[in-house]
């Protein structure tokens, strides 16, 4: 985020405010700014979502393909993240300008989704050792207003929740090859279990405290930020309330640090705990929204806005 100019007194105001847990827009240290989310926006994709958090605009499309599983993990499917920084966001991203940022985000997502406790790749298996689904998660950054990682992880989880995978109707064995017949009825498809998929929370260190979802001004006052990937609670994403789920314990599936500064171990420990609390709140809010949206789609109640709103 370039272009924000702050005087020294303004910085002191923000830093002293955070010390006493006051922020200039009235939020607490674990509050996010209001967001807009819409799922099912791209009809060519198996699942899609668009998320707008302040000035950050993310569009996620998920495509599915049949692939051969890796020989060392025959029962697991594959998931692949690709981030594209559109030049619409800023002219600096023209040509290959956004590649570095894009790679850092996609690597972070890949790491957060790697753990089997975060996302169960077994559900993508078709034929053990022979065929599996490969999910291509394509993330398009349309506008860049800070806090990209958090927005991307939210949009990806919403899009995965929206993803439909066709059922396999029949399989023909021909020698060593398998020929699959997929159902072409769009309603004859299975949904993914994404309840435990991780959310990324960026914590910005200001003074000795950390805040989530920093504004551009707050980002200017901070030298280092910590990104925590926290697994989600499946309870918020299941349709029927009667299903018995094991007691939920949020787990960190990835941690990374960005920026030139350093952080003490006490602050780090506090920051991780704060990140987990923020992620649990965020996960509950996201779960409620996407479940409500799915019910509306099923009842044809929802009007699709896309970018026309």
């Amino acid at each position: 985020m370039a272009g924000v100019l702050l005087s020294r007194t303004e910085k002191v105001f923000i830093i002293d405010g955070v010390k006493d847990e006051y922020r200039s827009d009235g939020r607490s240290t674990i509050d996010y700014r209001p967001m807009e989310l819409e799922t099912n926006v791209v009809s060519h994709a198996s699942g899609s979502a668009r998320l707008r958090l302040a000035n950050t605009d993310i569009l996620v499309g998920i495509k599915t393909e049949i692939d051969v599983p890796k020989p060392d993990k025959p029962a697991l499917g594959k998931i692949d993240f690709f981030v594209d920084c559109s030049a619409n966001a800023t002219p600096e991203f023209e040509g290959r300008g956004g590649e570095q940022l894009a790679n850092s985000i996609s690597n972070m997502m890949q790491r957060a989704y790697q753990s089997p406790q975060a996302f169960d790749l077994k559900q993508l298996c078709i034929f053990e050792g022979k065929q599996c689904w490969k999910l291509y998660v394509d993330i398009l950054i349309l506008e860049c207003g800070g806090n990209l990682c958090d927005a991307v992880s939210l949009a990806v989880k919403a899009a995965l929740f929206n993803t439909k995978i066709p059922f396999v109707k029949a399989a023909l064995m021909d020698g060593g090859n398998i020929d699959l017949q997929l159902s072409d009825d769009p309603y004859d498809s299975k949904l993914l279990d994404v309840g435990s998929a991780p959310l990324l929370v960026t914590l910005c260190k200001i003074g000795n405290k950390c805040v989530v979802d920093p504004t551009a001004e707050e980002e200017k006052c901070s030298s280092v930020s910590l990104i925590v990937g926290v697994t989600g609670n499946r309870k918020y994403y299941s349709d029927d309330d009667t299903e018995e789920l094991p007691a939920f314990q949020p787990k960190c599936s990835a941690i990374s640090m960005h920026g030139p500064g350093s952080i003490t171990t006490t602050t780090l420990r506090n920051a991780i705990n704060q990140g987990i609390i923020a992620a649990v709140c965020l996960d509950e809010a996201l779960g409620k929204t996407v479940v409500r949206e799915r019910r509306d789609i099923e009842k044809f109640k929802r009007h699709s806005y896309g970018f026309l709103k």
Partner: peptide, 13 residues
């Protein structure tokens, strides 16, 4: 001018 197509914009990725 720069023209780009989202990776999910077409039938095939």
């Amino acid at each position: 001018c720069q023209y780009s197509m989202a990776t999910f914009s077409t039938g095939e990725r």
